[in-house]
């Protein structure tokens, strides 16, 4: 099952690319965060939010764990999705911070950034962080924020896309503007 740019675009259409960028940037600036996108660190500093490249590498690596095994085209899908999500909003800032935290813990516990870990170790790391049993919360603990900004960010994009939905049996999943015809059709 191949994820495509179309799926990434569909996920963005469902979840929003840059809606309210100006407002988001203002909120981020109010919080003293870097809303610029490219000028952040690589997540290796104590508090530095992750830069674009680090976010893309990390989320692609996490996607390889949280997406079904036979999903292909994951890197392109995540890239395309993040093209819209990594704007100047408070949400994007939250993603950068959660990625930086996840990588900091990975270095401390496993000796390398998430993207450099073996997939089995990556899976274990996410569970050690607590992201598997945590309820997502953008303002919560590390586990809750990793669940919100990393794990669920990816699962939301995937299962709101036509390809992800179709794997479950629904080609027009909630959040995807797939038209008002599919509900009338019987199973194929």
């Amino acid at each position: 099952m191949e994820l495509t740019r179309r799926d990434a675009a569909a996920a963005l259409a469902a979840l929003g690319a840059s809606g309210g960028v100006a407002l988001g940037a203002r909120v981020a600036a109010d919080r003293g965060r870097d809303a610029g996108g490219d000028s952040g660190g690589d997540g290796t500093g104590d508090d530095a939010p992750a830069d674009d490249e680090t976010v893309r590498e990390t989320l692609t690596a996490v996607a390889a764990v949280v997406y079904p095994d036979d999903a292909t085209g994951v890197e392109e899908f995540v890239d395309g999705f993040l093209d819209g999500r990594l704007d100047g909003s408070a949400h994007a800032a939250g993603v950068r911070e959660a990625v930086a935290e996840l990588n900091r813990l990975a270095r401390s516990w496993h000796g390398g950034a998430v993207a450099d870990l073996d997939p089995a170790v990556r899976d274990r790391h996410l569970r050690e962080v607590g992201a598997d049993i945590a309820d997502e919360d953008p303002d919560g603990t590390t586990a809750e924020r990793v669940r919100y900004y990393v794990v669920n960010e990816l699962l939301l994009a995937f299962y709101a896309s036509p390809t992800g939905g179709e794997l479950v049996g629904i080609e027009n999943p909630q959040g995807h503007p797939g038209g008002a015809e599919s509900y009338r059709r019987g199973p194929r």
Partner: peptide, 10 residues
């Protein structure tokens, strides 16, 4: 606005 922006976002 992003999903995580607080109520003040409105």
């Amino acid at each position: 606005m992003s999903a995580g922006d607080g109520p003040a976002g409105s």
